[in-house]
């Protein structure tokens, strides 16, 4: 492993250790670059959770090292207190069952919808999600 890759891996480990809730995503919470990342951000925001976010797109080695560390191939990845919670599917499922609020130590919002926040219609192309958020 080259030094740069080691540095990236150490920076990722440090970020996971130092931030109670941290999301590795494509793009930023303000401008997600993938529908799955957008949906996960929307779910965390629906619970009013403060979270750190890391954009993995600037360098392919970030994703490579993250996936090697977490043994999880896809993005986004949500970590809470150092543990991988999951990607978009698991986060959405846990929101719907109320487990996510428990893991995050927050109260589910009153009158919370049963379905996770939907950034696009089910079955819609994930890449169209950003447009829907903008509209």
């Amino acid at each position: 492993m080259s030094t740069v890759e080691q540095q990236i891996r150490e920076a990722i480990q440090e970020a996971i250790a130092e931030n109670e809730v941290i999301l590795f995503m494509k793009g930023t919470p303000e401008a997600p670059r993938c529908g799955f990342s957008a949906r996960t951000v929307a779910t965390l925001e629906a619970l009013g959770t403060q979270f750190a976010a890391v954009d993995i797109l600037p360098d392919p080695r970030i994703r490579q090292e993250l996936s090697a560390l977490s043994n999880w191939p896809t993005i986004p990845q949500l970590f809470v207190r150092g543990e991988l919670v999951g990607g978009c599917d698991i986060v959405s499922e846990m929101y719907e069952t109320g487990e996510l609020a428990g893991v995050l130590g927050v109260e589910p919002p009153a009158g919370a919808p049963e379905e996770a926040p939907v950034a696009a219609e089910a079955g819609a192309p994930p890449l169209s999600i950003e447009n829907r958020l903008d509209s």
Binding site: F36, R63, N71, W72, P73, T74, G86, G87, C88, D89
Partner: peptide, 25 residues
């Protein structure tokens, strides 16, 4: 749940993120 998803992802290995851009589970 995490291990269940890992089990399915493992069927495809590096194809996930490659030819299979996304596999929602």
């Amino acid at each position: 749940r995490i291990e269940q998803h890992r089990r399915v992802y493992a069927v495809f290995g590096p194809e996930i993120g490659g030819p299979i851009h996304a596999l929602s589970l």
